[in-house]
Nucleic acid binder design. Structure first.
Lengths: 110, 110
DNA sequence: CACAAATACCTTGCATTACAAGTTAGTGTT
DNA sequence: AACACTAACTTGTAATGCAAGGTATTTGTG
């Protein structure tokens, strides 16, 4: 029951949400996630996820030169990605409501 | 990005929380979860999880006769289980806060 | 009694996915 | 050249939810 397991199926939705705010590149996403309070979100997690989402046509990419380092691959949401984001938000709201309801009963475990 | 993935690492904490309310048996847990809004929580998910939690000394069990059907295996939290529940609650609060923060920016996807 | 139906528990095998650890590559600094 | 930083990617592993199937016990119906 580690922390990492709790991210399953949640991280992709969060990536979609961040990309929806505006073009970002993978490396930047890792930093943004951390700023949002996600602990150890490694690149080994994010890059495969982005590649998968591209295959599923949730996102498109464009390469742009970087001021320092190799070219950055910027991601944008496709219409399909926006639908998926909307669906994720609904699923998340439902799940978090259910969990909160279960936990709420006792604020502390005593 | 199915619904089932989102339960990973969350379901066990929810089971601990429900057991903490009072003795329950496995079959009953499946029904309670459903009443809390969890969709398809099958026994194939719950029983292995309970067995694992028993091995990890989070819960203890006692067998009692049923009015109809085979004996029920009732579960109770151990002190270790209560600690784990508390830890789960903290992790959940942190995670759900982070996700809400990311999603909050735009109530709709536009 | 034979049979069905409901209750209750358990097992097997599979698919998904987060992540550590390592690799490749470009740019700038010492 | 050597190093540091940025940036993307790959490989292999571990955790775990779940469908599908199986077993056992009790009650009710014909």
């Amino acid at each position: 029951m580690s922390n990492t397991q709790m991210l399953k199926g949640i991280l992709d939705g969060c990536l979609l949400a961040i990309i929806n705010e505006g073009e970002v590149y993978g490396y930047e996403l890792a930093e943004k996630l951390e700023s949002y309070g996600f602990q150890q979100t490694s690149e080994g997690t994010i890059y495969p996820l982005l590649i998968r989402m591209q295959k599923e046509e949730m996102v498109t990419t464009t390469l742009k030169k970087s001021t320092a380092g190799p070219r950055r691959k910027y991601y944008s949401l496709t219409p399909k990605g926006k639908n998926e984001l909307q669906a994720f938000i609904e699923r998340w709201n439902q799940l978090s409501h259910s969990v909160d309801q279960i936990l709420q009963k006792r604020g502390s475990v005593k």
